[in-house]
């Protein structure tokens, strides 16, 4: 049974993540009075890219060549480590909040290195912007998970997800604040509005896209796929840590089915929220972004303060 769960945990995120991208794009298109592409288009894009030739700059070092594998592997490992709809079973040693946060940071680190590696000006400023944003986002990220860990009394994500279901009403405000902070980090880390425009063709405004501008073919496919994985990972964390309704308490069929059902609804709502956000606001000017990330941090500091006052 454990093996079975492990396999599902491993393949679930990469299998579903392109669909989330497709759904977000479809909702955005509808909100803009457009028809929009099929929700399965991201799968086709990845498939197409995997069959394309690559062009790699002569100046590229091993960093550039290996980064797509590292970044993709990071999302696989993290995707495997987070609570999706199975409760905690033996063997999940990688589910600590610190492990998850800093494994993702390894991916960001290599992506930024790869951005500057080819010496293109776009990659350079993409990496510079990405490091500015992710350095500021890290505080909010850690603290929002820490808020939940403090409430649950454990830094294991599965424990937090299970415990969260029985959280008393007195923790309503800290959880809400922590989620606010987390959602800002979600948008920053996954290169969504108002931090970055995933649909832009304007090279000068790009952050994430500028870093991967030099990639093509298979490596680009991996980078795109990894970005989709990362988005799903953040949505899963948001859904299961802060809104753990129906999260599986045992591995029985009924419990798991209910868990999957709730899970899919929650992910769909997250996709909808991102799509609505991206259709209704403009991207922020770059130098306003630190303020927003600082708000995320403040939310979490207040949340932690509240927890201690409650306890």
């Amino acid at each position: 049974m454990s093996i079975f769960i492990w396999i599902i945990q491993l393949f679930f995120v990469p299998a579903l993540s392109p669909l989330c991208i497709g759904i977000i794009r479809k909702i955005k298109a509808k909100l803009q009075n457009r028809q929009g592409a099929n929700i399965f288009q991201p799968y086709r894009d990845i498939w197409k890219l995997l069959h394309k030739d690559e062009v790699i700059s002569n100046d590229a070092s091993w960093v550039f060549r290996f980064t797509p594998y590292i970044v993709f592997a990071v999302t696989l490992v993290v995707g495997f480590s987070i609570p999706i709809f199975f409760p905690r079973i033996a063997g999940f040693v990688t589910s600590d909040i610190l492990f998850v946060v800093y494994t993702l940071a390894i991916g960001t680190f290599f992506m930024a290195l790869a951005g500057v590696d080819t010496g293109s000006a776009f990659g350079g400023f993409g990496s510079s912007r990405e490091m500015t944003i992710s350095a500021l986002a890290e505080g909010g990220f850690i603290f929002s998970l820490l808020t939940m860990a403090l409430i649950a009394g454990s830094s294991n994500l599965f424990d937090i997800a299970s415990f969260s279901q029985s959280i008393g009403g007195q923790y309503f405000l800290p959880v809400l604040l922590a989620f606010g902070g987390f959602f800002i980090v979600l948008l920053a880390e996954t290169a969504r509005f108002p931090f970055d425009n995933p649909a832009t063709h304007l090279e000068l405004t790009m952050v994430h896209e500028a870093m991967i501008l030099e990639f093509s073919g298979k490596r680009l496919a991996l980078m795109e796929w990894a970005a989709a994985n990362k988005l799903l990972i953040f949505m899963v964390l948001g859904a299961n840590l802060f809104f753990p309704f129906g999260f599986g308490t045992d591995v029985g069929l009924a419990s798991i089915s209910l868990s999957i059902f709730y899970f899919l609804i929650k992910i769909f709502l997250f996709c909808g929220a991102i799509a609505v956000l991206e259709s209704t606001i403009a991207k922020f000017r770059f130098f306003r972004l630190p303020d927003l990330l600082f708000i995320s941090f403040i939310f979490n500091v207040v949340a932690i303060g509240l927890i201690y006052s409650i306890k």
């Binding site: 955005k28 304007l202 405004t205 259709s279 403009a282």
Partner: peptide, 16 residues
């Protein structure tokens, strides 16, 4: 102009 700020609602309607 609206599209370039990322305000896609305005962008799409301008083209329309």
């Amino acid at each position: 102009i609206m599209m370039d700020t990322g305000f896609s609602f305005g962008g799409a309607n301008g083209s329309r």
